[in-house]
Amino acid sequence: MTAELKMNRAPPHVDELYQDLLGSFEDLSDDQKLEYAVLMLVTLSNQIGDRKVVSEAIRLCRHVVRNGP
């Protein structure tokens, strides 16, 4: 499932996207960073619109956070 998520969703220009994401946190205070991250999550989830895909992303990211490197 996780592999599927990655395979299906890996877009071109990942390096550029990565820079965009990093850059988007610039000039924000720590509080604002959290608020911004929340807004991004909602906006992207809305765009994806598929609960299964979002659930799979949630599962994957929580797994990584909880299980460390």
């Binding site: 959290l34 608020e35 929340v38 807004l39 909602v42 906006t43 809305n46």
Partner: peptide
């Protein structure tokens, strides 16, 4: 905590973005 952050940010977002109103 996070419940309030989500709620408050959505309210702000809905002022700017029509899609957020459904949330």
């Amino acid at each position: 905590g996070i419940e309030r952050t989500f709620r408050d940010q959505l309210l702000k977002l809905a002022r700017h973005a029509p899609f957020a109103r459904a949330w």
